[in-house]
Design a protein around this nucleic acid. Sequence first.
DNA 1: GCGTTGCGAAACTCAAGCGTATCGAAATTA
DNA 2: TAATTTCGATACGCTTGAGTTTCGCAACGC
Lengths: 202, 202
Amino acid sequence: MTIQESTTARPAGRPRSEKAEKAIIEATLDLIAEGMGVSELSIEAIASRAGVGKTTIYRRWSNKEDLVVDALATLRAPLPPLLQESVRDDLIVLLEVIRKEAGEARGRCVMNIAMSEADRYPRLMERFMKRAVEPRKRAMRGTLERGVASGELRPDLDIDLAMAMLSGTMMHHTKWAPAGDLPADLPERIVDAVIAGIGPQS
Amino acid sequence: MTIQESTTARPAGRPRSEKAEKAIIEATLDLIAEGMGVSELSIEAIASRAGVGKTTIYRRWSNKEDLVVDALATLRAPLPPLLQESVRDDLIVLLEVIRKEAGEARGRCVMNIAMSEADRYPRLMERFMKRAVEPRKRAMRGTLERGVASGELRPDLDIDLAMAMLSGTMMHHTKWAPAGDLPADLPERIVDAVIAGIGPQS
DNA sequence: GCGTTGCGAAACTCAAGCGTATCGAAATTA
DNA sequence: TAATTTCGATACGCTTGAGTTTCGCAACGC
């Protein structure tokens, strides 16, 4: 054993450039953020944008879908810590995450892909759901269950329906609202409206 | 003036086939319903599916987008008459329209395009919004305003937020629900949940 | 019947993009 | 230094589809 011995011996030859790898993924995300669907994405455009030869891409990913999967996987946004005190406040935090993402080009990547390409790229969707959607759903479900237990929410609450109300209302705004950023108090207003309902006798 | 004189004199030669025109539009809608995005749609596929020569398409529409706009325009679903009695019931009727559409292939055309191609085809979206979305928004807004006036809904209601809650929750189900048809009582459950809120003390 | 126009089919040119191969240069190990 | 591997660049053959043209036939008015 030599002194320099890692778990897998480094093969001879020039090592792969991490910088190129990052540039490729960045270029991919940029193009998606600019509104390109997966089917319109071209390897040539990605290579050109990344300042990289096509060879360098094909040496790492065997096709476009694999690349997009890996690129989206790097977007796994960390969920902010929940305060675990007021359920209302935690729900606001969860919606605020969506609002922030909708304001950034990168965040819209996720949205665009999720909305558009669900049927056409099932393999992509599966991985994407697992990494990006499931954790958030779990967090929201946990918060709602806590609210039911604590009496902050009604005891007979349909949790799935409540989740659809909260994130559905938020998504409706991100997709259909007039241009520009979503107002900062939107999550708060949505949570309060969903809690109180639109009926009379507040 | 001859006896046979319409407002526009029929030009000489063989008249254009209405059957071909319909077949083209049907084929276009079929392909979209099967999950094809606008960018993946090919004139050749449409012509083949319609049993029509490419010439016959290009004689009528100068490019793909014009064709898609016209095809989607034929989908203008008539809004069912509202009962104008219980606001709750009218809201259920409005959501039921969405539920039914989500169950049919044709209805998903509209959804798919609306969700996916908003940014890429602004001209298409503009016409589409005017024909398909605006009338429904008007109907829902009118119903909600009626509810505020009648006392069925709270007097300080944020109408836009309420619209987002109702259709957002519905759309959330159409997009993310497990496969299969949406349950028949979903509109009712959504409307009741949105009216009552998820908070305690029903 | 004759001129005109639409029809479907097929061939065509043109562009984009895929995936592969080849090049000389650069980076690394032995 | 020699061997090996990656680098970006470029060229290549191939497929797909756009949009045009040409063909022989069909449908219409006159």
